[in-house]
């Protein structure tokens, strides 16, 4: 059973088309070349589909790194 970070990493790898991509809570757009404002929303919709959650616009605007995303995902997951 994959934990939240591993599932999030799976989404990152799919969106950024990089099977070797390793993320941690501090990973930000500075660390991933292709993570820009254009790919950001694609990432958001893929994360929502993976975890079956819906982010609010304010939550999305507060994401500065993968850790921020993880915190909100865990907050929105039904079992949390």
């Amino acid at each position: 059973m994959l934990n939240t970070l591993e599932r999030l990493q799976k989404v990152f790898r799919r969106v950024f088309d990089n099977d070797k991509l390793v993320i941690n809570p501090k990973t930000s757009a500075k660390d991933i070349n292709m993570w820009d404002s254009i790919s950001h929303m694609e990432l958001i919709s893929e994360v929502e589909a993976e975890f079956k959650i819906v982010f609010s616009f304010d939550q999305v605007m507060e994401f500065n790194n993968a850790g921020d995303m993880l915190t909100v995902i865990e907050l929105l997951l039904p079992n949390s």
Partner: peptide
């Protein structure tokens, strides 16, 4: 402009950006 629009259209994948 960009983020509010694309956020609302995000399920249209490539079309949204």
């Amino acid at each position: 402009i960009y983020y509010p629009v694309v956020f609302r259209l995000r399920y249209y994948k490539k079309g949204a950006p």
